[in-house]
Amino acid sequence: MPGGGPEMDDYMETLKDEEDALWENVECNRHMLSRYINPAKLTPYLRQCKVIDEQDEDEVLNAPMLPSKINRAGRLLDILHTKGQRGYVVFLESLEFYYPELYKLVTGKEPTRRFSTIVVEEGHEGLTHFLMNEVIKLQQQMKAKDLQRCELLARLRQLEDEKKQMTLTRVELLTFQERYYKMKEERDSYNDELVKVKDDNYNLAMRYAQLSEEKNMAVMRSRDLQLEIDQLKHRLNKMEEECKLERNQSLKLKNDIENRPKKEQVLELERENEMLKTKNQELQSIIQAGKRSLPDSDKAILDILEHDRKEALEDRQELVNRIYNLQEEARQAEELRDKYLEEKEDLELKCSTLGKDCEMYKHRMNTVMLQLEEVERERDQAFHSRDEAQTQYSQCLIEKDKYRKQIRELEEKNDEMRIEMVRREACIVNLESKLRRLSKDSNNLDQSLPRNLPVTIISQDFGDASPRTNGQEADDSSTSEESPEDSKYFLPYHPPQRRMNLKGIQLQRAKS
């Protein structure tokens, strides 16, 4: 015994090295194993092979420090690593049964499904019991997946119906949107047309105001020219009257000059006056001389005659003075006559000038009245044309509004008919989907599995289990394997941990 101590140590070291070499393959693929292994699927088989106990299973599945599946799978690998070579062998058998691809990844061999460990530990009855539990578990999982698949199909059909409904609603909204954009385009076109009409109206108003201003300026210029013409006519008439007055005065002077006595007659009258003065002096001298030589009687007679002569001279002087006064009065009367005649001529000139001015103003008033009548006639014609244009424009607008209203009513009726057609199509689609759903539900009910399987069917299934373990590994792997896509769409199922009653199965096998 003492001599065998070193050999035992060498043997233990060799086993430990082999164990480390075995687990080295697992550690190399630890990331892939932790990512894809579900500990809840492996722990029943590991407990059946007595590699882990209930406490280890509870620690792996329910520990609060292991929230994710990767953490739980890593903890399970750590626990199996502590179990040595047996933990490695049982772990590979569980991978061979549940995850053939991972088994091939770790060992590089094809899975054979021999279950040597569980046969050694529990015997064939334990293997049968384990396989029966796994089959029931798989059936329950398949039923749950079928239910989930039916629910998802129903949800899918519902979503398809909602999608069709949303599509129809979208078509309806597109119809309304198209109608909205069309009405918006019509409104924009009408606004552009309105702005264009306003611009045209403004341009016409500006043109009309400009023409009116030009016409008023032309009328004012015409009036100024007419006033200048009238003033020139007035000056012409005044000059004609002055010329006529000057002509009359010149004719009067000419007549006075023609009626003036001649120079010879004046000289002859002056000679006669001198001769008479000479004779008068001679007679006076004779009379003076006679007075001195005459007697007293003759002197008395001469005195009487002288007195008579003096009286006659006085009378004559009075007559001469009277004649002079009369001549002066006649001259003054002639001057007054000439003055009055001049005033008369001036008044006649003024009267004729005023008459011509009156005629001029009368003509001017007639011209202004004619212009006013023409302006009123043009204004009435413009008003009439404007009223006709406004009436025609309003009539066109009324007809346009009428046609637009008819078009809008027809478009609304068309839209309502399209919407009604879309709604009826939606109703038809809904009815078809309901009919299809009812038909599929009836087919699913016919094809669904019963909840409680008979014992004979279970025994028959387990009677055929042994050949399947040898020759149909691919079928078992397809039913027991969970793909990543299934984990996305289906909830994980945790079967209840219970042991099955095998009395009925044993009785059935005894009868057979």
Rank of each mutant, 00 (worst) to 15 (best):
L131Q: 05
W23I: 03
D146Q: 13
T128D: 15
M65T: 09
P44H: 06
E7A: 12
L33P: 02
R86S: 13
C49P: 11
F130R: 15
S34T: 12
M8D: 12
D56R: 06
E24T: 01
L22A: 09
N25A: 11
E19A: 12
M12I: 11
P64I: 04
R72E: 01
V135P: 01
K145M: 09
P111R: 09
D56C: 02
E13G: 12
G126E: 15
E93D: 15
E110F: 09
F130M: 15
N62V: 01
S34G: 04
K50A: 12
R47I: 06
T43H: 09
E121T: 07
K16W: 06
F91R: 00
V60P: 01
M65R: 07
D53T: 10
Y36S: 08
Y45F: 10
Q140D: 08
V135E: 05
L15R: 10
T14S: 11
L92V: 15
R86T: 14
T128R: 05
I52W: 08
P6Y: 11
G123V: 15
V106H: 00
Q85Y: 14
I118H: 14
H81L: 05
E57L: 02
E54Y: 11
H31S: 08
S34N: 01
R47T: 07
S94E: 09
G5Y: 13
A144E: 08
H31W: 11
T14Q: 06
S68I: 04
K104D: 15
P111S: 15
L77N: 10
L15F: 06
I118C: 15
Y88G: 10
L15Y: 11
K143F: 04
V119M: 15
Y88H: 05
D78H: 01
K145G: 12
L22M: 10
G87T: 08
H81A: 06
F115Y: 15
F91G: 02
E110I: 02
A144H: 09
G108E: 07
A63S: 12
L131E: 08
Q55R: 09
E13F: 07
P39I: 01
E19G: 10
P39R: 01
C28L: 03
K41M: 07
L105Q: 00
K50H: 11
T112W: 01
L105T: 09
E7D: 10
M32N: 08
D9E: 08
P67R: 11
I70N: 05
E121K: 14
L80C: 06
G84S: 04
L77D: 01
I136Q: 14
P39H: 02
M8E: 13
A21I: 03
P100Q: 10
K41V: 04
E57A: 03
E134G: 15
C49W: 15
E59R: 14
Y98N: 02
G123M: 15
F130N: 13
M142I: 14
L33E: 01
P67D: 03
E13S: 12
Q55P: 11
E59V: 05
C49N: 15
E19M: 13
I37K: 02
I70Q: 05
C28V: 01
E122M: 02
N25V: 04
K41T: 11
D78Q: 01
D10N: 08
Y99T: 00
S68L: 11
F115G: 07
L15H: 08
T43F: 05
D53I: 09
Y36Q: 13
E57D: 06
E7H: 15
T107L: 00
H81W: 04
R114M: 01
H124W: 12
L127G: 12
H129V: 12
G5E: 10
D53P: 05
E122D: 15
Q139H: 14
G87Y: 00
H81M: 05
L22V: 07
M12N: 05
R72G: 03
L22Q: 04
M132T: 01
L127W: 14
L66V: 02
A144R: 09
G84V: 04
E19Y: 13
L66G: 00
G5R: 13
D53L: 07
K143I: 10
Y45W: 07
H31L: 09
T112L: 14
P6K: 13
G123A: 15
E7I: 08
T82S: 07
D20I: 09
A73S: 11
K143M: 11
M142P: 05
E121Y: 03
V106M: 05
I136T: 09
R86Y: 01
V119P: 15
V89E: 15
E59G: 00
G123F: 15
P39F: 01
S94D: 00
N71T: 11
V51D: 04
Q55N: 11
N62K: 05
K83Q: 08
V119I: 02
T43L: 09
L66W: 03
K137C: 01
P64V: 13
E121G: 14
L66P: 04
S34F: 04
C49A: 13
L22R: 05
F91I: 01
L77P: 02
K16Y: 15
E110Y: 07
L66H: 06
K16P: 07
V51S: 07
E134K: 13
R113P: 03
D17F: 11
E57S: 04
K143E: 11
E125H: 15
H81S: 10
L92A: 05
L33M: 06
P67C: 12
Y45I: 08
R47S: 07
M132H: 05
G108D: 00
D146V: 07
N25M: 07
G5K: 14
G5L: 12
V60K: 00
K143G: 11
L42F: 06
V135G: 10
V60E: 05
P39K: 01
E96C: 06
Q48I: 07
N71P: 03
E57M: 04
L138F: 10
W23Q: 02
M142L: 14
S94G: 12
L76A: 04
Q48L: 08
T117R: 15
I37A: 02
R72P: 02
L61W: 00
M142H: 11
Q139R: 14
D10F: 13
S68Q: 05
K41E: 06
E27N: 11
G123W: 15
I70S: 05
T14C: 05
E13T: 14
